[in-house]
Computed example of a mutant assay.
Amino acid sequence: MTDFQTAQLTRLSLTGFRNHATLSLTLSARLVALVGPNGAGKTNILEAISFLTAGRGLRRATLSDIADRQGDGSWSVAATVLLDGMETKIGTGLAPGTSGRKVRIDGEDVRGSESLLDYMRVLWLVPAMDGLFTGPASDRRRFLDRLTLALDPAHGRRVSDFENALRQRNRLLDQGGSDAFLGALEQQVAELGTAVSIARGETVGLLGRMIFEQAEQDLPFPHAALALEGAFEAETLGLGASDREDAFRRMLRDGRPRDRAAGRTLSGPHLSDLKVLHAAKAMPAGQSSTGEQKALLIGLVLAHADLTSKVSGMTPVLLLDEVAAHLDPDRRAALFSRLQSLGGQVFMTGTDEALFEALPPAAEMFEIRDRQSRLIRAASGS
């Protein structure tokens, strides 16, 4: 991992964030465990870290809902990040009476959260994702888009612009917009949608190859086989970007009567799905056991962490919420060993210190209780 930049949080401060009026952590280890009772705010700390990169955070919450209910409606997350020996202070938050979050880097306001990707790539695995393989396709598209964003910082804006253009087209169809206006808007939809589909396909291809390369290693988690599927991908298979745009534009033009009747656009990559198989069993992940699904998801996230390092040149920060509780002791120890080998910083939560007995000596542990933090195990040999 020495070929990659490694971002490490050395200090984290929360103000007015969820149940934390104020909270500060001084961090020295790459493996960090947060333990404490349910409701103490451990996941809230992970969510705060997830806002130190581009996107809407691990809960995709409305910004105003994040603020401590006992405060003035504002919240902030500030951190000191050590990136290859250079310290940078980054922060984000919501000011009272505003609707968009602000981002600061070394005390200077910057436009958009995409700038944070220069300092940190953050990936996460939370219990809400346990139903990923059995839930709606929209959840898997969102998951794939987040994987893609870690590799391609422009992808988040691309998806947002595509979804906005789709909404405008649907509105124009409902209002009886002219062919000229619809044609111009459909050209934009086709360009953006094709770019989104290509980026997703590249991520699936790269991740699939990374998983295949790791299949020969003795890793503790099953391997997944991935595919991006949908009518749009099937109809444009083998076409170059320009031809795919033209094909999508024709689909939109020819589908106007049907889309107008349905009140939505019925063709395009906004309906595609990420298909996941348990490779060893050639079985859809959604038909695997609950334990196998969890193990597949962990393996997928770990492979993506390796891919993110390889593509971006930066080892990501991992947020793993309640991940150890679902594993037997042997697999738990194997997970900690695997996390250490990734070389990046990892934050894990759990209700019981015993879940983290197999952590290496260089790890540290904090107890989160009564809106306060306490170091209960210092790192050694780091």
Rank of each mutant, 00 (worst) to 15 (best):
I90H: 00
S138G: 09
A154V: 14
K102D: 11
G156V: 03
E114L: 08
D106R: 13
D139R: 08
S115R: 13
G131S: 12
T98Q: 14
V77K: 00
K102T: 14
R104S: 09
D118V: 07
S99T: 15
R121T: 02
P136W: 14
L149A: 08
L144D: 02
L123C: 05
R104D: 07
F143P: 00
G100M: 15
T88R: 11
A79Y: 04
E114R: 12
L123W: 01
G91F: 01
L116S: 03
T92D: 00
R111Y: 07
T134P: 01
T148Y: 04
P136V: 14
D152L: 11
E114Y: 06
D145L: 05
G131A: 13
P136K: 14
L82R: 12
G131M: 12
T134N: 06
L151F: 08
D118N: 15
R121F: 08
T88G: 05
R140L: 05
D84K: 12
T134F: 07
L144V: 06
L147A: 07
T88M: 07
T92E: 00
V122A: 02
R141F: 01
G112W: 06
S115Q: 14
G156H: 05
G85V: 09
L132T: 02
L116A: 05
D109Y: 12
W75C: 02
D106G: 07
R111T: 09
D145C: 06
A150V: 06
D139H: 11
G135C: 10
D139F: 10
R101V: 07
G107K: 11
L83M: 12
M120Y: 07
G91L: 02
R111Q: 10
L132I: 06
A137R: 09
D109V: 10
K89H: 08
L117E: 04
L83V: 04
I90Q: 01
T80C: 12
S99I: 15
G85E: 13
G91Q: 04
S138C: 10
A137N: 03
S99H: 15
T134A: 09
G112D: 04
G97W: 06
D118F: 07
S113Q: 04
P136C: 13
S115I: 11
G93M: 06
D152P: 02
A78R: 11
D118C: 11
K102M: 13
L94D: 01
A128D: 13
M86I: 13
V77T: 01
E87A: 07
I90D: 00
M120H: 08
D130P: 03
H155I: 02
A95L: 12
T92G: 00
V126M: 13
L116F: 04
L117Y: 03
V110W: 03
F143I: 05
